[in-house]
Amino acid sequence: MSELPHTAFSLRRVGALTSNTLRELTRLRVFYVLLLFALLLIGSSFFLARMTFQQEFQVLKDISLGAINILTSVLAIVATARLLPQEIEDRTIYTILAKPVHRGEYMLGKLAGVLLLLAITTLLMSALFLAVLYVREHTVLAETARQMRAAPPDHLEEALRNVRASAFNLNLLPGIAIIFLKAALLAALTLFVSTFATSNIFAVVVMVFVYFIGHLEGTAREYWQQEHGTGWIASTFLGLVALLFPDLQLFNLVDDVVAGTPILPALFAKTAALGGFYVTLYFLLAWAVFYRREL
């Protein structure tokens, strides 16, 4: 066999790294979060039985989407943080990088593996949630129809419409897509942090801070831009927060979607573009650090 021609980028190489990363992560029993999610859904439905259907749907949606939000975020951080340190500890990273593999390809494979994992978990949790919502909606519709047999037709119609409106609405889907985007952003940022972090724990701790600061970034940015006449120390601090951290609050559309606010396509597109920008930026930075890193 002659020497293989070497290309700067190979989809097959990245594909192999991606599927290997995904496989490794699924081996970690990350899908237990799905079980947790299912238990939460079942548990809350007992509790919700004492409420009216509007209350029930509202709380069911809030709890489910809140859980999808936190579980994907936690998964993104915890799963990504261990990828590099683990491979270094196992020394398998040496076997891979001693092959004709670019470090950029290696990083891309790792990130793609995590994103695939996040996409799968988000889809499964959403499917579970929508199934529960669908079943409950149809139970309530049937009950309402039975109770309102005697009412004028437009009252019944309106009541049924109310039930439908308070259960599933199509805006939930872009809302869920944005939850995924936020998790993808956190994964890319964690990958970046893990390229210079000395340990898995360090990366996770840093990311927890980033998570909270990222949610406050909007407030810091507004104060900074308004020039409140705060001292220069405070102003510099606010400026740094505004410049260095992503505004994670922008990715929390789902709270208001549950409450019934529609997501305009333009707003969705802008948010998605912003998310894409961050994922790319953090990936490139991760690559830049990792490119020169000594292993």
Partner: peptide, 12 residues
Amino acid sequence: KIPVEAAISAEH
């Protein structure tokens, strides 16, 4: 990114 985020925030 700050002006972009500020704009999306205003839209929110």
